[in-house]
Design a protein around this nucleic acid. Structure first.
Lengths: 192, 192
DNA sequence: CGTGTTTCTTAACTTAAGTGAACGAGTTGT
DNA sequence: ACAACTCGTTCACTTAAGTTAAGAAACACG
């Protein structure tokens, strides 16, 4: 499991054995059961997550309805906005499969960053990269219809469609579950 | 104009006079006329922008139609995804008002970052902050209807509605100009 | 000035998403 | 084994956005 993490890090910086040991000594690996809530609305938290195996989702509860806004799967990192803004969280994070994560809090990161400047470089590169990626995702979302978004998802993250319940997928696509059903039926008809 | 930039930077790190001089010596201030195209689709670029005065927009051309996805106004920074991914740009950037910008390229940043580690810290903080902000914007977009998005914009960035043409606003909201007109008429009716 | 262009609005019609309700399949719990 | 629940689908109906076209208002420019 550690090798997965170090393999990921090696795409940005190279670590010495001592540095690897320092990271391991932080004891950040966690095994989490399906259904576990990692963060609740209104809660303050300093924890960031990195998914080694499994899948977690973020969702809001608006008008007593769940609105799923993101899924994080293998090799994806999530720092909730509340960690950055130091305000209570506006959303929930929960685990939709038995998962293995790393959980690190911002105090730890501050310490590591000042001890190993390399690490801060990685954090900068990572967040710049994620920012650029998210910008493109946002642009694609804005410029396409629900049907196009679904077809797009089918191409880019076909695994999600298998492992995630339809009603969560629907709100991720910005529509109601009934509309997703209909839309899929429509697509099947066109193919034939 | 410099003071605007240094005031912005001071929210993240404090600069000595020498460091300020080093930044000024880079000669990054640019005055840009309304209508100027700063980046074209297919073009490779290393330039990042920071708006001191005025307004720039990013847009795609899909099916020979402009799709505006973002506006950047006073004290907002933009690093195009193509700068990070080092691939040709998928979108255009153009200036919708006479503006004053700073234009910095990634080589300059690399140099400054290694000379002043402080600066890299600021870049990390900035991109983490922007990432968190954009996550929230994206979530709001996904979880609301075009009408809610418009009302939301009216509250959060009322200036945009004044300074930006309707058809650009419409595609920013993910709808057609005709729908925006209708939607506005609907809202006015409700108020009365 | 007026001519042409861009920008915004309005209208009629089409298409797709929202809503509320009902149904069957699969799960969970007792 | 049965009741309660969740989940996905379907249907009929409502509402809003897309499309096409036309016209008014503002602006740019020779």
């Amino acid at each position: 499991m550690q090798d997965l993490l170090f393999g990921f890090i090696s795409k940005y910086i190279s670590l010495t054995e001592d540095e690897k040991k320092a990271i391991l000594s932080l004891d950040i690996f966690r095994s989490v059961k399906k259904g576990t809530t990692l963060l609740k609305e209104g809660q303050k938290s300093k924890d960031s997550f990195f998914v080694l195996k499994g899948c977690i989702r973020t969702y809001y509860v608006l008008d007593s309805e769940e609105k799923t806004t993101a899924f994080y799967t293998e090799m994806e990192a999530l720092t909730p906005p509340c960690v950055i803004s130091k305000t209570p969280s506006e959303y929930y994070i929960s685990c939709i499969e038995d998962s293995i994560l790393t959980v690190s809090n911002s105090d730890m990161e501050l310490e590591i960053n000042s001890k190993f400047p390399k690490f801060e470089t990685m954090c900068r590169m990572l967040s710049e990269e994620l920012l650029a990626k998210q910008q493109i995702d946002f642009d694609e979302f804005k410029t396409s219809s629900p049907e196009q978004r679904y077809l797009n998802l089918l191409q880019k993250r076909p695994d999600l469609i298998q492992r995630v319940p339809q009603h969560q997928l629907a709100s991720y696509l910005g529509i109601k579950p009934q509309s997703l059903s209909r839309l899929r039926a429509r697509i099947l008809e066109k193919k034939s």
